[in-house]
Design a protein around this nucleic acid. Structure first.
Length: 112
DNA sequence: AGGGTGACGATCA
DNA sequence: ATGATCGCCACCC
């Protein structure tokens, strides 16, 4: 029987999803940063695509550049609410990235 | 091949 | 800060 594979090459999507999952509670990241961390710099839109079709991801921890919530209406409120519940603080309309931006592990062996 | 879609990002006014 | 525009990327019809 045929497998129910949503896409022939879930590589990119999977990698991106893994990156999103790796964001710890109380921390956040951005579409662009996630894409880059997953190895696809410039693929911020694919991060969005991954978030749209996926279930069980800590979607609330992914923000727009600068820590801005890019969702609209009730969805924005929901994200705000969830982050607040994780102890994430805001600077006006944006998350305080100074405090909560998640730093993805680098591939460098000798960071110096 | 051509046109449209997105929870984007950087830049310009 | 806001709105418009262009660049970017994978995917769908």
């Amino acid at each position: 029987m045929k497998k129910i594979m949503p896409s022939p090459k879930p590589n990119m999507r999977e990698t991106i999803m893994a990156a999103i999952r790796s964001i710890p509670r109380g921390k956040v990241s951005t579409y662009g940063a996630v894409a880059k961390a997953a190895g696809f710099p410039g693929a911020a839109r694919q991060v969005v695509a991954a978030l749209r079709g996926a279930v069980g991801l800590p979607w609330q921890r992914v923000l727009g550049a600068g820590g801005a919530i890019k969702l609209r209406g009730d969805h924005a409120f929901e994200q705000r609410f969830r982050l607040d519940g994780e102890g994430v603080t805001f600077r006006g309309r944006k998350v305080d990235m100074k405090l909560h931006e998640h730093k993805f592990p680098t591939s460098k062996k000798k960071p110096g």
